[in-house]
Computed example of a mutant assay.
Amino acid sequence: MKIAFYGSSLLSSYWNGAATYYRGLLQALARLGYDITFYEPDVYDRQKNRDIEAPDWCAVVVYEAAPHALMQVAARAAEADIVVKASGVGFEDDALLRAVLDHARADALTVFWDVDAPATLGQLRDEPDHPLHRALQEIDLVLTYGGGDPVVWAYRAMGAAECVPIYNALDPETHHPVGKDRRFACDLAFLGNRLPDREARVEAFFLDPASRLADQRFLLGGSGWGDKQMPANVRWLGHVGTRDHNALNVTAKAVLNISRDSMAANGFSPATRVFEAAGAGACLITDDWLGVDLFLKPGEEILVARDGDDVAEIMQSLSAERAKAIGASALRRVLGEHTYTTRAVLADAIFRRHFERPTVEAAE
């Protein structure tokens, strides 16, 4: 089956946290026999900061951020059996959604794939005239990056015919243990772009503990932090491409995950970096969110901090030996239960069920 996937970017993780999610999941679907074309707009300097070139398992079409180019690529939805519009594409999202739905064949499966469901649902609650409200009456299926039952119930209440979370996971070919790199030597590392709905949590969970642990070294990776006041023991790396994520995760004694406000409030939304870090065998500390224990076991496979005080306490007592043991346990767990291969099998079953449904109804 052919998939037309309209997303932010497959080729670049620059200001695009969904890149590794797209790559892992779509490559796994390609292995199951799907013929995939990914359409991404040339925005935010992403094409100047590519992590990869177009892979052999997926065709990639980069289009100009202009209305005529958007309409040209939207028209190609007519060629696909499955038409996917992701959230947060970054250029005229509402117009793109309308255009791909208008061009999709009547027999095609139409999918809205939400990579930031708690935030999207919050916007829908605040904006009763948002175009997505109308589109949900037409779309066959909503898939989400996470969110658990709260997101499923909320989307169904807003008119979605079906909503299923397809969680982040690990691509072992991309994220795996490597040798240490002294560029990333530190006690605690955090990797994340500066975003309005995460900055206060970064201050509380990362910068404040750093200010109290002057004898420890902290690394901050991600875009947008250049003018942020930081303690002297925090070194800012700027954008860290995915090719360096393994080395950073392996080299730091511990790696910190900090959820965005909406993700933390909703729960059941592990960030991609959780599985990336675990796949490299890193000792991961995460802020506390509902459902973390469904993915990794607190205290054995991941450490959980309720606030900055907990982070500071963990770092004061964390030995290199314990950090290594936690990382090894996390690696075993994600390889066994949380790979994109398992996620793709779920997505494939959902897709096939939709195409088989008319035949089943006819037989009855």
Rank of each mutant, 00 (worst) to 15 (best):
His130Ile: 04
Asn193Ser: 14
Ile166Pro: 00
Ala232Lys: 14
Arg134Gly: 11
Ala200Val: 07
Val304Ser: 06
Arg98Asp: 10
Val255Gln: 10
His68Ser: 15
Arg235Pro: 03
Ile139Ser: 08
Ala30Leu: 01
Pro270Lys: 03
Leu96Gly: 05
Gly281Arg: 10
His68Phe: 15
Gln137Asp: 13
Arg273Gln: 06
Trp113Phe: 13
Thr272Asp: 10
Leu294Ala: 15
Leu11Asp: 00
Asp102His: 13
Lys2Ala: 11
Leu32Asn: 10
His354Ser: 06
Gly299Arg: 06
Leu256Met: 08
Asp114Glu: 12
Val151Pro: 01
Trp15Lys: 13
Tyr63Thr: 06
Ile166Lys: 00
Trp113Ser: 01
Thr251Gly: 07
Phe295Cys: 02
Ala86Cys: 15
Leu170Trp: 07
Trp113Leu: 01
Val164Glu: 09
His68Leu: 14
Gly159Leu: 09
Gly327Ala: 03
Gly33Lys: 09
Ala99Met: 05
His133Lys: 04
Ile52Arg: 10
Asp293Gln: 11
Leu303His: 02
Gly279Thr: 06
Val111Pro: 01
Leu11Arg: 08
Gly122Ser: 09
Asp81Lys: 08
Trp57Met: 00
Pro177Thr: 10
Lys2Pro: 07
Leu284Ala: 05
Thr272Tyr: 03
Ala30Phe: 05
Gly222Pro: 05
Leu170Ser: 02
Thr341Pro: 01
His133Ile: 03
